[in-house]
């Protein structure tokens, strides 16, 4: 009786739009992630994975010095990319938000979207060619009597790759958050005698804080999870965590250990994201 009432009160129309999404996302987004975490406790016997609940993979990974090196390197590189991207983006976004017309800004943002739809691999390859010993950059500075400078297989090259990946997004997010600042606020700061720098520090940065932090956060997530730049431009020596995942999965057939590394990455990113959001939305 209660059950049939429940059936009758079902809103079939509403559920048609809701349920398939839930089922799909649980089955193909949530389940893989949960399964991966579970997999980190599985065992590998005779090159076959056996479902189990053992901490052995975790202990193996955590006891390896190279894992901690990679972890530190990944964090450091991602932090460096976040810092440089935010700093390089800020004056550009400031210019886009305040010193250009509405139309120019819209076009600029359209052009900033284009890179997302060009192959990141191809762009990395271009940088590879540009930065090689006998590449275009050394070629040009050679004419000026400098170099050749070793750029490939350095952190500099990795960072260039990360910037390729993240800079457009960071600029877009910063620009949008700055463009939505009430212009009167800035005007008021100037009227109160604040100079350009004072106005930026005391009005624009606090007002655009959420956009600046979210931009930095996305930069961190993208850099931390990228394997292309550190591998092809940075030379993978030592490897970052994503490269470690690939090596462990592809050559070693050690999926459970790769799962340990991936889980560590996920937890790290979650902590970073939570603290970033907390800072972004903190009441002043």
């Amino acid at each position: 009786m209660i059950f049939s009432n429940w059936i009758r009160s079902l809103d079939v129309y509403a559920l048609t739009w809701r349920l398939p999404v839930i089922i799909w996302q649980v089955l193909f987004f949530l389940a893989p992630l949960i399964f991966m975490i579970a997999m980190s406790f599985f065992l590998v016997k005779n090159y076959r994975m056996v479902e189990a609940f053992e901490l052995v993979n975790w202990m193996k990974i955590f006891s390896k010095g190279y894992f901690w090196n990679s972890y530190g390197l990944s964090l450091g590189l991602a932090a460096l990319a976040t810092f440089t991207a935010s700093c390089i983006a800020f004056p550009a976004s400031y210019c886009l938000a305040f010193k250009l017309s509405e139309t120019a800004r819209r076009w600029a943002i359209f052009f900033l979207i284009i890179p997302f739809f060009t192959s990141y691999l191809v762009r990395t390859f271009s940088w590879y060619v540009l930065m090689a010993e006998s590449g275009v950059v050394n070629n040009i500075i050679g004419h000026l009597g400098i170099g050749p400078i070793k750029m490939l297989n350095t952190m500099f090259a990795t960072n260039i790759g990360y910037l390729t990946l993240t800079l457009p997004l960071v600029i877009i997010l910063q620009t949008l958050s700055m463009a939505s600042i009430d212009k009167n606020l800035i005007e008021a700061a100037h009227n109160l005698g604040a100079g350009r720098v004072r106005a930026i520090v005391s009005v624009i940065i606090p007002a655009a804080r959420i956009g600046l932090i979210i931009g930095a956060l996305f930069c961190f997530i993208l850099s931390f999870g990228d394997f292309v730049s550190p591998y092809y431009l940075g030379g993978s020596n030592p490897p970052t965590l994503p490269i470690l995942i690939i090596d462990t999965t592809k050559s070693g057939q050690q999926w459970p250990r790769a799962a340990v590394i991936a889980t560590v990455m996920m937890v790290t990113l979650m902590l970073v994201a939570l603290s970033a959001i907390k800072i972004a939305y903190k009441k002043r």
Binding site: F28, M36, M265, A273
Partner: peptide, 16 residues
């Protein structure tokens, strides 16, 4: 989904 690094999704989906 877009906030999870692709490499992690890749491993998770491969396993699943």
């Amino acid at each position: 989904p877009p906030t999870i690094p692709l490499i992690i999704l890749a491993l998770a989906m491969l396993a699943w």
